[in-house]
């Protein structure tokens, strides 16, 4: 084994790329859950974002149009979920699962004519001399714009929830929708907005896969990333900065296992491939143990709200 072949700089740079889809999706889902809604359809929204983004980028020739379409596609899927759960008061868990299955099927249908086509990808941002600095140059200044957008979103969501009045209202709705309602806040409107935001983020995450990371469209290409995103929200105990840590940790393990294999580590390949998922399970168990002593979940998470109650 030749571990010296693994360059820490490139490892960190690749893990940021590998983590960006789940980071975006997890961040969106965190906001949704902060508003008291559990949307298990992240996978479905991501894959719809991946396909609408890819199709739009191919048809228009611009990856930016692709990302825009992906955000709209993801949000549209999310609003479908919102309509069912917030207006028709359907069960959130069941509706979320249905949304995932629906998204996987519909995306396969939409993407049928687009398999194996090459899309224009986004280039890296050129920051001139900054990008040439050792280590930090490649890690901090050598990425495509969406990586920076995802980091900005993390900071934005963090600041929004912590410092703004709107963020306070959103958290209030998630902690006690009855109290928020009694104070005159529009619980359903707040939740719908959060759901749409979550969908748009998941859509962007999906499009990052199909437009930058791969870049190609294949059926089922999200391959469970949406579920990982859901786990990361719990792992992060509903805090934006920890979502970032969780996503990068997961991305890091994914990239590291491939690098270890390439470097010739004598560890069974199957174990290396399963490593990211094993770590996710482990983390969830640890979190659950802690959760029994209070926990950090919004108090009204997944509870239906109707103004009459």
């Amino acid at each position: 084994m030749d571990l010296s072949a693994i360059s820490p700089t490139l490892l960190v740079a690749s893990l940021m790329v590998a983590a960006t889809p789940i980071l975006l999706a997890a961040l969106g889902e965190m906001v949704v859950e902060k508003a008291g809604v559990l949307n298990l359809g992240v996978e479905g929204m991501m894959i719809m974002g991946a396909v609408t983004g890819f199709v739009a980028a191919i048809e228009s020739g611009s990856p930016w149009a692709g990302f825009l379409a992906a955000a709209i596609g993801g949000a549209a899927m999310a609003l479908l979920f919102g309509f069912l759960t917030q207006v028709l008061l359907s069960n959130q868990v069941a509706t979320g699962l249905a949304l995932t299955l629906f998204g996987l099927g519909l995306s396969a249908l939409i993407g049928q004519g687009y398999v194996g086509i090459k899309a224009n990808s986004l280039g890296r941002v050129d920051l001139g001399a900054l990008s040439d600095l050792p280590f930090v140059g490649r890690v901090l200044f050598g990425h495509d714009p969406i990586v920076y957008l995802s980091l900005l979103l993390v900071a934005g969501v963090w600041a929004f929830l912590r410092f703004t009045r709107a963020g306070l209202i959103l958290r209030a709705v998630g902690e006690s929708h009855n109290a928020a309602h009694a104070l005159g806040y529009h619980v359903r409107r707040v939740r719908m907005t959060a759901i749409a935001f979550g969908g748009a983020c998941a859509g962007l995450g999906g499009a990052y896969l199909s437009l930058v990371r791969v870049p190609q469209w294949t059926e089922g290409m999200t391959a469970g990333a949406g579920w990982i995103a859901l786990a990361i929200v719990v792992f992060a105990s509903w805090r934006a900065e920890r979502v970032l840590v969780g996503a990068y940790l997961f991305g890091g393990i994914t990239v590291l296992q491939l690098n270890l294999q390439t470097a010739g580590a004598r560890v069974p390949v199957e174990l290396l491939s399963a490593a990211p998922y094993l770590v996710t399970i482990l983390v969830l168990v640890l979190i659950s143990i802690r959760a029994r002593r209070g926990g950090a979940a919004p108090a009204d998470l997944a509870r239906p709200f109707h103004a009459s109650t």
Binding site: T254, L258, E270
Partner: peptide
Amino acid sequence: VVTWAYTWFDPAKEADAARAMIDQG
């Protein structure tokens, strides 16, 4: 340098494997 992808067709995995190789020279 051999990397086993354990798939015939999975663009995401194949891309990651290629990137890991390129990163290692």
